[in-house]
Each structure stands twice: as C-alpha cells, then as structure tokens.
C-alpha cells in the first residue's frame, strides 16, 4: 500500500505510523462520564468499507494525515494533511 504525503509525495506505507481512527472525538474537558471516556479510548466500530484513519509520516516530514481508505480493498481514496501546517500544504 502506498500513501501520498502532501509534502514528500507517494511513499510506501512502511514510512508511516498508524495513529488510529480519525473519526473518534475526544469528550469535552468538563465531561466526567467514565463511560464516554471509555468509549472514546476503546470502542471502535471496525467498519468494512471506507474509513478515515490518522497516519503520521514518521520516516519523512512527520506530517499528520487523515487517510480515507477502503478497509476491504485497501484502496486509498485521499490523504489530507492535518495540524497547524495543513493549510500551507493543500
């Protein structure tokens, strides 16, 4: 599988580190519900089909990416930068 880093270009996925589900939303700081925090950390839907994932280009420019990937076919639909430099990379 190859991912297209917006800074470095098309690279082998071994240069990247998987950082988890990009759709998980951290509970608000004032939310003290242990169930909500438990769900944020552990509960994942594991969909078959298109999924958004966070990856980091650890062996390259170290940019965080949101990768839209089909978990059945491994087709990569998009790689979008996130973080403070995202606007400059688009």
């Amino acid at each position: 599988m190859r991912l297209t880093c917006p800074y470095c270009g098309s690279r082998d996925h071994q240069e990247f580190t998987y950082r988890g589900d990009a759709t998980a939303v951290r509970p608000a700081l004032n939310n003290t519900s242990i169930d909500d925090h438990n769900a944020y950390i552990f509960d994942r839907s594991n969909p078959d089909g298109v999924h958004q994932e966070l990856w980091n280009h650890t062996s390259g420019c170290r940019t965080h990416l949101v990768v839209e990937r089909n978990t059945v076919t491994h087709e990569v639909l998009s790689c979008k930068p996130v973080g403070p430099f995202a606007r400059k990379l688009k």
Binding site: C8, G9, R11, D12, Q14, E15, S59, G60, C61
Partner: peptide, 23 residues
Amino acid sequence: ALDFDESNFAVGSTQLAHHHEIG
C-alpha cells in the same frame, strides 16, 4: 524505497526516507 529518477529527485534537492526504520 525511493524513486531516484532525476524527474523525482533532482540534483541539489533533498528527500527524506528510511532504511529499515533508520531515518
């Protein structure tokens, strides 16, 4: 795992890569 062709990696330019986890 890098394309070393000059169309991708021109003389004077820099690329970041790794070799068996060594950056």
